[in-house]
Each structure stands twice: as structure tokens, then as C-alpha cells.
């Protein structure tokens, strides 16, 4: 793979410090305790897959990392910057963290190219030509450069999600968060999106992915985490995780999703 300036290889963390740290993170919705004492460390270049039953808090946890949700207690540090209510820190972190949503959330009134260049132009203050070049580069990376002037409504679900991935990559993030990226796709389109994510992983991007796609976990993850009722129950390398789950809850969950 050519090491061009436009590749997605992130810079190594200064002095080997972890990219993301969650320490004793707690979150409440009203009085409902939705994240319980979550501790997690993600090193640069690591790929973490998070799985668990619905309502376990996995989406909430990764949405806390780019402040789409707020945590009330504990510490979250992204690339050395602590995530607090401080708006400047939030802005800095959001520039370095890319997010891919379950329902794509592309901007329907802009073309694919405009979707990709909007944030670089207005947030990173990149000149338009450079932003468009970057956008076309990433569109080629996700293998749909010919769709640049189309509108999201004209694309299939799989194509839309790949555009969403490209949109996040155009901001050159250090971390990519995926919130159930293939759950809203028709089965025949899941593979094209997972392929893109696997390539991204192989290039060394730090990734946190909430998903039920266990095949992806086996292929790419450095660590698989199982969450239930707001806590991290088990965390292990994928081979160990699937072969020898330690907790009963993990065993139950694995039997449910791997059963069919």
C-alpha cells in the first residue's frame, strides 16, 4: 500500500500513551444508571469490538467519547485531551474522532461530494480544491468515485454507508467510532461495508466498533468486549473470547447470536 500523504495512517501516540482512556466512567439518564464504572483503554492502532444485548449501554459508551452523550462521573481522555464540559476541548476532540452511524445520517440536500467537503471546509478551514481532492481520494478508497455528484437518496444503503465512512475519513480523524454500522443494511450489502472497514483496520486506524458481526470481530479485532447492563463483563482477544467465554452472561449472549 503506497504511503501517500493522503493515507489514513494515524500518527503514533506521543510517548506511547493510549489513544482513548475511560476511567471509572458512570452515566445516568435521570436516576437510571446506564453506564456503571466503565474502565477501558484503547492503544493507538488497536481495534476494539463491543458487543452485548440491546440496552447494555454499548452505543451510549461510544457516544460519550465524542460527547454526543455526556458522562456525569469519571474521566474520558482522547489523545491526551480530557473530555469535560469545556467547549474548546469538545471541539478539538470531535475533529479527531470520526463517527459512523447506524442510519448513515448523510445530508440529503447535498451531493455526495458536498457531504464530504462540508466539514473540512468549514471546520478545518481547508481550501475548496484541496477538500475536493481529498474527498475524491476517499471516495476511491471506498470504491464509489463515480457517485460524487449524486444525491444520497439516489444511492443504495451500502453505498450510503460507505459515503458516510468516507465523510468521516475526510476529516483525517485519529480514531473511528462505528455504532452498529451494518444493522440497518439489507444482508447483501453488509459485506461491501465490512470490506471497507477491514481495509481501514489493516491500514492501522484505531477503531471502536459496536456490532453484532462476529465474523468481522474474528477477522480484525484486537480485543472483543462484552457489555451487559451498563458494565463491561468480559474483555479478551477474539479467539479466546469466542472459544472460552468466562462469564455465564457472555455464554448466554453468544449462544443467542451465534445459534442461528
Amino acid at each position: 500500500m503506497a504511503a501517500t500523504a493522503a493515507s489514513a495512517r494515524p500518527a503514533a501516540g506521543a510517548s506511547g500513551r493510549p489513544m482513548i482512556e475511560l476511567q471509572h466512567v458512570n452515566k445516568w439518564y435521570g436516576q437510571f444508571h446506564v453506564l456503571r464504572d466503565v474502565n477501558l483503554t484503547v492503544e493507538t492502532g488497536q481495534k476494539i469490538v463491543i458487543c452485548g444485548p440491546s440496552g447494555s449501554g454499548k452505543s451510549t459508551m461510544i457516544r460519550c467519547i465524542n460527547r454526543l452523550e455526556e458522562h456525569q462521573q469519571g474521566k474520558i481522555v482522547v489523545d491526551g485531551v480530557e473530555l469535560t464540559a469545556d467547549l474548546r476541548n469538545i471541539d478539538t476532540i470531535r475533529r479527531e474522532v470520526g463517527m459512523v452511524f447506524q442510519h448513515f445520517n448523510l445530508f440529503p440536500h447535498l451531493t455526495v461530494l458536498e457531504n464530504l467537503t462540508l466539514a473540512p471546509i468549514w471546520v478545518r478551514k481547508t481550501p475548496r480544491k484541496e477538500a475536493e481532492d481529498t474527498a475524491m481520494h476517499f471516495l476511491r478508497r471506498v470504491r464509489i468515485p463515480e457517485q460524487a455528484s449524486k444525491y444520497p437518496g439516489q444511492l443504495s444503503g451500502g453505498q450510503q454507508q460507505r459515503v458516510a465512512i468516507a465523510r468521516s475519513l475526510c476529516m483525517r480523524p485519529k480514531v473511528m467510532l462505528f455504532d452498529e454500522p451494518t444493522s440497518a443494511l439489507d444482508p447483501e450489502m453488509v459485506k461491501e461495508v465490512l470490506d471497507v472497514m477491514v481495509e481501514l483496520a489493516k491500514e492501522g486506524m484505531t477503531m471502536m466498533c459496536v456490532t453484532h458481526e462476529m465474523g468481522f470481530a474474528r477477522a480484525v479485532a484486537d480485543k472483543v468486549i462484552f457489555m451487559d447492563k451498563g458494565e463491561i463483563v468480559e474483555s479478551n482477544a477474539p479467539t479466546e473470547f469466542f472459544a472460552h467465554p468466562k462469564s455465564d452472561r457472555t455464554k448466554l449472549f453468544l449462544s443467542q447470536i451465534l445459534g442461528h
Binding site: 445516568w28 436516576q31 444508571h33 456525569q72 462521573q73 464540559a85 469545556d86 467547549l87 476541548n89
Partner: peptide, 15 residues
Amino acid sequence: RPAAPKMRLSLSDPI
């Protein structure tokens, strides 16, 4: 649930 954090006197504090 802990009490909300105190407001800081800075424009980057949302409150």
C-alpha cells in the same frame, strides 16, 4: 448520580 459540576467563568463553559 453526582451533583452537576460548578460553572467556570469562561466562554468555553457551556453554562
